[in-house]
Amino acid sequence: MNNSNQINIAEHSEGMSLVVRTIARWVKSFIFIFGLYIVFYGHLTPGGGFAGGVIICCSFILVLLAFGKERAFKRLSLERAGALDSIGALGFLLVAVAGIFFAGTFFVNWLSVPAAGSINSLLRKIGVGEFRLLSAGTIPVNNIWIAIKVCASMYLVFALLAMLRINDDTQEDL
């Protein structure tokens, strides 16, 4: 049962083998950028806060699995992940409550949607208007909050699961 020759995921501080580490070094930024794209363009293309948050979380998980927990916690420590989790939930709620003050209703889309005719070509060039980045009012903002929340909470659970040692009697310090 206590076979130390088998694969120990994220239990060694030095991480996995050289091949995995080299590829992870190349791939992790691309996964992160792809997750950001999915989040920011969630209201125009397939995707959104949930999928993007889990994809960003995947890049952190890759670092955690490939390089071990020291390097992963240098990027995103457990305390910071817990704080981000709460910040994401609170920010989402804050955007919802702000609707009461700006438009009178809870959860209303209070960032005004510009009418189609009122946008000139200069504004469209910098990204305002239909089918542009700044088009959907509070939806992209909420997408960002949800992505932060999902990413941080999944990372937190995964890091704790990866650090849990069952076979030994002694548990690792968090």
């Binding site: 209201h43 959104g48 806060g49 889309n109 949607v113 088009s135 997408n143 929340k149």
Partner: peptide
Amino acid sequence: DTGAANAVSAVILDYRGYDTLGEA
């Protein structure tokens, strides 16, 4: 109504925001 081209995104975060709040 919302300016979002993705109808699923519009439903999640605008028309049915309460669902997403409960999910969170």
